[in-house]
Amino acid sequence: MKKQMQNKEFIKTWVEGKVGVIQLDRPKVLNAINTSMVREIVETAESFDREDDVMVIVIRGDERTFAAGADIDEMAEVDAVTMELRNQFTDWDRLAIVKKPMIAAVTGYAFGGGFELVLCCDMVFASENAQVGFPEVKLGVMPGAGGTQRLTKLVGKTKALEWLWFGDAKPASEAYDLGVINRLFAPEVLFEETMKVAHRLSEQAPISVRLIKESVNKAVDYSVYEGMQYERKNFYMLFATEDQKEGMAAFKEKRKPHFKGK
């Protein structure tokens, strides 16, 4: 069942089961991302993050494409000081601290800012014929919303430099081999299969899912020692939840657990 939400200018949003969906919606420009669209995405993701009925967030484009890049017209004439004052990338920082799982479903192209949006997500599913990449270098610039950092953390320095220096479009299969993409699906079934995964994840114990995300992100940013201290605290914290009691009781009683997210 789809629960339609009040639609924004550049995105469509709705809730299916416990999954909140954000669809980029500028089909005429292959969903090119502009600052207003990012703001809408962030605000929606944050509101899904607060909503009790939503457990997982899916970000997608349309059947044709995810997002072919950032809106160049918006950037072409801007100077450095204006950008510093505008500080537009803080919206992206907010996206990175959303606590619920975010899943990207990538059709067609995810280039530049579109690919950065994909890399903000926790899991990525893509069409077999999708392409990703950072073409910024060809315009005499570079990624500015986390591209150089997130790609490098994912694939390592040598591959990241190759991708970023040449700016070539990379087939989804290569991104899959490098661990950027979780799974490839036929384009015809991508959205459906992604939603199946999202629904499955939405049935897991919510606070576990949340603290696992937080801990894994610390593994990316922290030293192993500090990460492990963090993990330990989160582990302990789960023993304060009803779901832990329920999960372990259900295990002992050989029945399915019923999680409440408490």
Partner: peptide, 9 residues
């Protein structure tokens, strides 16, 4: 898995 997806389509 590919066959399953293809057959679905």
């Amino acid at each position: 898995e590919m066959e399953a997806g293809a057959q679905k389509t």
